[in-house]
Amino acid sequence: MSQSIKLTINNQAVGPIDVADGVMMIEFLHEYVNLTGTKFGCGAGVCHACTVLVDDEQGISEVVRTCINGVERFNGKRIRTIEGHAKQNSLGEITALSPVQEAFLEHFSFQCGWCTPGFVNESTALLERLKRKPIAKDQVEKVIEDALSEHVCRCTGYVKYYAAVKDLILNTKGLTL
């Protein structure tokens, strides 16, 4: 049995595509639309490497794991994957990284990079949330911990990821009070 899937990925309409029954979203991204930046980690929803952003009509994002959610959950939705963060020119060449990506590079946040797409998506959602609802400076560390605590990294011990996001939040106008 197959089904017809249609959605928007990184501002581009995708589908309708016939997708086999029982396909998880990460498999759809990899095998049906050739977006391989989202990484498969534990396959059980624990490590959060595979997260993508699902945007609602108001532009508010939910961070969703793609290894444990079937493609059906995303049918008709707008999503952002790691491929959608950097600015690209008409040739598809990257012209500028997103602020979160820049911060992770500056802080040497990752080594192997497997967990990075998940951290980028989660941190981006956090920044967008703070833009809508700024917080006091002394709350920044706690908010980062709450947002990133479920993302597993096996190389750098988290400190550099957390420091990068903290630095970015404190140095971006309008995110803190």
Partner: peptide
């Protein structure tokens, strides 16, 4: 598959509870 709950199950639940409800 003709029931509306089928798509919901496959989209939201099957990843952990199994395609045929066998669990993990």
């Amino acid at each position: 598959p003709e029931l509306p709950g089928y798509t919901l199950y496959k989209g939201y639940c099957a990843g952990c509870h199994g395609q045929n409800g066998e669990g993990k």
